[in-house]
Design a protein around this nucleic acid. Structure first.
Lengths: 338, 338
DNA sequence: CTGAAAGCGCTTACAG
DNA sequence: CTGAAAGCGCTTACAG
């Protein structure tokens, strides 16, 4: 049995109240005599006392915990976000519970419920494509939460995203400046706002350079079974537009799969094509040293996410309701590798 | 305010006891009339009741939560482990709290304490190099935990590791069979048992093929600032042994850095050297299609880890003390790519 | 078939 | 300077 406040109180013939105050650092504030304080402190050490945070939370109504729900913790982007969010959360005095939704609606909703049942003070979530219902519920109930990565413009909810349209524009425009006219876009999940914005940026870059948007150069890869699917897509595009000279990938996963395909086919893609990709990963330095990338501002995103969430938590505690603008759109840092 | 058992009880003019039993599925067992049960169920739905798991845990003494402490959640190996461990834990009815130690002793110990204060039922930890004191404490107090990845043979504690010595032997032996005689080992943190075992395997492979172990071919990369350090190490080895024809990397991180270096220097490493590495990652398929690897048995490790932990948790609850062998050593699956 | 009561380990007005 | 008491939201013997 772990020792409790009561054990210490009994042993020292003082009240639980006194022990509680001393151990939570309110000894001076409450005017407990120094001798008593010292007795209690040493006794706590001796008996190896550790407070039961569950009991404390039950009382105070706040657990000092934030829940993070990710589609897939083993994905490099999400796991980097997890790392930074944890660091930021800690700066605000919160610890993090992380879990995966597997991009499944049912599982995601269960996780939201589970987190709430465990009394986390707020939830950070990279929603699946389907999510809204539970998210709307959190909004309606005034439960603190913030979304990132995916984006539901129709819902007025707190979110942090990157400027997908502009980052895409910059990258594709740069490819064009460098003389690439026939640029394919390889994308997926285009019904997601984040993805459609990337397409918009691609389109705007072409149009502002008087290049006609060619549907033959549009490659939509299905999310399911994308590893096979992308091969078909690439082959079709190369067949239909033999003089293609650029690729814009909307995710690093697609780029990696494409490079693998090029590699297997012996296509010298680094020489042959101008390359650009949303999201930068270390592997690119070796695989595609000249790819232009938009680097996700992981640190900045994490900081904003945690800020927005803790703001809500504090507001809720103070019963204030000054809902400022709880969303933000961040720029990627674009890297040109010429 | 969220609705509680009491709210439902008051509204329906029954006791909290009855409500609790019905809602926790013990209605029939306790012989609550069906009408009452139904009233309670619908009322709970209407009032949007969700149990407070903290309160339940405080009572039952078990939180249904397992803590996972990783050196770095953004590392691909650890994040894959996290994913699989979560899946396995769920099969046993536990949810997972994940946190990073940053490989810092002080932080790791704080996290152990924090988890215990939050009453997790057990801890899974990939220890830092320094860890023992808190780990010994958990052992002494009979607190359920299990270690993986790193290994303290002198402590009799539950662990799950891979067969580092044999995997290394297999890989290096294969390189030799393929005609590579001058094989360098690139390693780091050699004071760790897991790492020294990999060296042992390398040595055994050479010796069993009557090849003299040449210290010139030994490359120890410091963990701190390894990105610069590895360049020095590689340059030194290549200078001292110009006819080197094989590399054995003890981690994928070292391999990636080396490939980057080779790439920058224009060294056609795929043609020039036989390559082998502990741990397989997707990038290798493109970067080094012919590298031989030992794949970490992520699923199997996760399964064993969770098994060992839940076994302890259950034993503790049942007050049994049949400590069986709570450790296991798993084989990697070796992939030769000739 | 149902309820009153004690308790899990804390915190916090309130009283002296 | 210190303590008795109520309460956070549950569960669970015990009693009828």
């Amino acid at each position: 049995m772990r020792t409790s406040l009561k054990d210490i109180a009994q042993k020292l013939h003082v009240s639980k109240t006194t022990v509680s105050w001393v151990l939570s650092g309110k000894g001076n504030e409450k005017g407990i005599s120094l001798t008593t304080q010292e007795k209690i402190m040493t006794c706590a050490k001796e008996m190896n006392y550790h407070p039961n945070l569950l009991a404390r939370s039950l009382n105070t109504g706040s657990s000092g915990t934030i829940g993070l729900i990710l589609p897939d913790i083993s994905d490099s982007f999400y796991s980097q976000m997890a790392k930074m969010i944890e660091i930021e959360a800690e700066k605000h005095g919160y610890s993090l519970m992380i879990t995966s939704s597997g991009s499944e609606k049912e599982r995601e909703e269960r996780m939201i419920d589970l987190f709430r049942a465990r009394q986390v003070d707020g939830i950070i979530i990279a929603p699946t494509k389907h999510s809204p219902s539970k998210i709307i519920q959190m909004k309606d109930e005034g439960y603190p939460f913030v979304t990132f990565d995916r984006y539901f413009p129709e819902l007025k909810i707190p979110y942090v995203i990157i400027d997908n349209e502009d980052s895409s524009y910059q990258l594709v425009n740069h490819l064009i400046q460098k003389g690439n006219q026939k640029i394919a876009i390889i994308t997926t999940n285009s019904y997601l706002k984040t993805m459609s914005m990337r397409y918009e940026g691609y389109k705007r870059a072409l149009e502002s350079n008087q290049i006609i948007v060619d549907t033959k150069l549009y490659g939509e890869v299905s999310f399911k079974n994308y590893q096979n699917n992308i091969v078909e897509v690439l082959e079709r595009i190369i067949r239909e537009v033999p003089d293609i000279n650029g690729f814009f990938f909307t995710t690093h996963i697609l780029a990696l799969e494409a490079f693998q395909y090029f590699h297997e086919k012996g296509i010298p893609f680094n020489q042959k094509y101008g390359l650009a990709c949303i999201h930068d990963i270390p592997t690119f330095r070796v695989l595609a040293p000249q790819i232009h990338t938009a680097r996700m501002p992981i640190e900045e995103m994490s900081r904003e996410i945690v800020n927005i969430l803790t703001l809500q938590i504090e507001q809720k505690q103070d019963k204030m309701n000054i809902q400022e603008n709880l969303s933000c759109q961040l720029s990627c840092s674009i890297t040109y590798r010429d």
